[in-house]
C-alpha cells in the first residue's frame, strides 16, 4: 500500500507521457490520418505498414540508418576502449583527463552539430585549413556535400559526444579486473597484446556488451544531429529513419504513415537490442 502511494506520482507521469501516447501511436498507425485532409480519417488495418514494407522510401533509409549505426558503434567502442585502457594506467594528471571527458559529454547534441558544422565549413573551417597546411588537400573541400565523406564525418561528429560515457563505463569494467591476474600472466611470460587478448577482453566482455547494446539503441534513433548538420542530405545520403519519420509526419503532416514507420523503427531497435543481448550474453557464458 505504501509502495503504491509512494511510487504513484512517478508512475502516473511515466504512464501519461509514455504508455498513453504509445497506445495512441499504435492507433494512429492503423489509420489513414493526414492533417492536410481533415475529416477523411479512417481505419485501414495494416495498410500503412504494408505500404512502407514494399516501398524503397523505407528500405533506403533503413540501410542508411544501419550504415550510420554500425559505423558509430564501431568508432565509439574502439576509441572508448583505447581511452579507457589509457585512463586505467596510473599517472599524474589522470583525474584531470577523466574530468575533462565530461566536456563533450555535457554538450547538447544540437550544439555539437553546430560545432562540427563550423569545424567542417567548406570555406572557413579549421579542418580544411589544417589539411591544406599539411598538404593533404590542394583546395578546400566540402566534406558534408558528398558521399562517402558526409557519412564519415557525421559518424565522427556524433561519436565525439558519445565516447565519454562509453569510456567511463568501460573504465569501471577495467577496474574490476584484479591486478594479480596480470602479475601472474607476466610471470608466465605473456606479452602486452596477449594479456589484452586473453585477460582484458574476456573479463571486460559483459561491460562491453552493455556499451554496444546501448550505443546501438541510441544510434538507430539518431535525429538531432541530422536536423542541424545535414538535414538528410546531400540528396538523401544521410536520410536515416529518424529523419524520414520527422519529414513524413511534421512536414507532409501524414501522421498515420509517420506513426507506422516510427513503430517499425521501434520494433527494429528492440529486435536489435534482444539479438545483441542474446548473442553477446551467450558469449559471456562460454
Amino acid at each position: 500500500m505504501l509502495a503504491i502511494l509512494f511510487s504513484a506520482p512517478a508512475v502516473i507521469i511515466i504512464a501519461a507521457t509514455i504508455l498513453v501516447p504509445f497506445g495512441i501511436a499504435v492507433f494512429l498507425s492503423l489509420h489513414k490520418w493526414n492533417l492536410k485532409r481533415p475529416g477523411r480519417e479512417r481505419f485501414i488495418g495494416l495498410e500503412n505498414y504494408t505500404d512502407w514494407l514494399t516501398d524503397s522510401d523505407f528500405w533506403q533509409p533503413l540501410q542508411t540508418t544501419f550504415i550510420f549505426a554500425i559505423g558509430a558503434v564501431l568508432v565509439i567502442v574502439i576509441i572508448s576502449l583505447l581511452v579507457a585502457l589509457l585512463l586505467n594506467e596510473k599517472f599524474p594528471g589522470r583525474g584531470l583527463l577523466r574530468a575533462l571527458l565530461l566536456v563533450p559529454w555535457a554538450i547538447p547534441s544540437v550544439v555539437n552539430a553546430l560545432l562540427w558544422k563550423w569545424l567542417l565549413n567548406p570555406q572557413y573551417g579549421l579542418f580544411n585549413a589544417i589539411w591544406y597546411d599539411l598538404g593533404i588537400i590542394t583546395e578546400y573541400q566540402n566534406v558534408l556535400g558528398s558521399m562517402p565523406s558526409v557519412m564519415i564525418w557525421l559518424v565522427i561528429a556524433y561519436s565525439w559526444i558519445h565516447i565519454p560515457l562509453a569510456t567511463l563505463l568501460l573504465l569501471s569494467g577495467l577496474q574490476t579486473i584484479p591486478g594479480d591476474i596480470y602479475e601472474s600472466a607476466i610471470v608466465d611470460g605473456a606479452g602486452i597484446f596477449q594479456r589484452f587478448l586473453y585477460i582484458t577482453l574476456p573479463m571486460l566482455r559483459s561491460m562491453l556488451s552493455i556499451v554496444i547494446i546501448f550505443e546501438m539503441i541510441f544510434a538507430l534513433k539518431v535525429f538531432d544531429i541530422i536536423f542541424v548538420l545535414t538535414a538528410g542530405g546531400p540528396a538523401d545520403a544521410t536520410n536515416v529513419l529518424g529523419w524520414t519519420i520527422y519529414t513524413e509526419t511534421f512536414r507532409k503532416l501524414d501522421f498515420g504513415a509517420g506513426s507506422s514507420i516510427a513503430m517499425l523503427l521501434g520494433a527494429i531497435t528492440l529486435g536489435m537490442a534482444i539479438l545483441f543481448y542474446v548473442f553477446l550474453d551467450r558469449g559471456v557464458e562460454q
Binding site: A25, L28, K221, T249
Partner: peptide
C-alpha cells in the same frame, strides 16, 4: 512487496520506446 520487480522493470523498459514514435501522438494531443 509483490510486483516490485515488475514495477522496476516496467519503469526502465518505458525508455526502450523511441521518443520519435511518442512525439507524434504527444504533439497531436
Amino acid at each position: 512487496f509483490r510486483g516490485r520487480n515488475v514495477l522496476l522493470f516496467g519503469i526502465l523498459a518505458s525508455r526502450l520506446i523511441p521518443a520519435l514514435s511518442l512525439a507524434i501522438p504527444i504533439v497531436l494531443v
